[in-house]
Amino acid sequence: MSSATHTHGSHGSSSQSGEVQPLVGHLVSYPTLLATGTTLLLLTIITVAVRYVDLGEANIYIAIGIAVVKATLVSLFFMHLRWDRPFNLLVLVGSMLFVILMMCFCMMDVGQYQHTFIPGNPSAVQMQLDTTAPGAPITLKR
């Protein structure tokens, strides 16, 4: 509440259209909203089209890149983050950073231990294992 009034106060008188102004929050103009919507639809068409072009590894990065652009547009304009309090932006970006953190650590690990997996159900695997203590190197009985 300490700084609640000043940012909102600035929005009140900035209208040119003569419309009713909201007591709180920010008003986004129709052209901005429509432009955002159109861009999102266009990007959707592009991302579908790219699916049919074989770019090898690049395909998934392009798809994710377009998705990130779309998500940014939605959050900045539809969700008012461009005009909202920076802390709300921090909340969204922060939560995404934590997802990325989780993804990075998990991916770094998963890539490395795959070769130690022994396919099969647990009881069958146990019969094949030659290990005596927790933490001992896992070897197969030969």
Binding site: F105, M108, D109, Q112, Y113, T116, G135
Partner: peptide, 18 residues
């Protein structure tokens, strides 16, 4: 607290680097 969860998994097959 978010960066250390792997210390519960030292013996559960987690890779040496992690």
């Amino acid at each position: 607290s978010f960066l250390v969860w792997g210390h519960h998994m030292f013996t559960s097959g987690q890779s040496p680097m992690m």
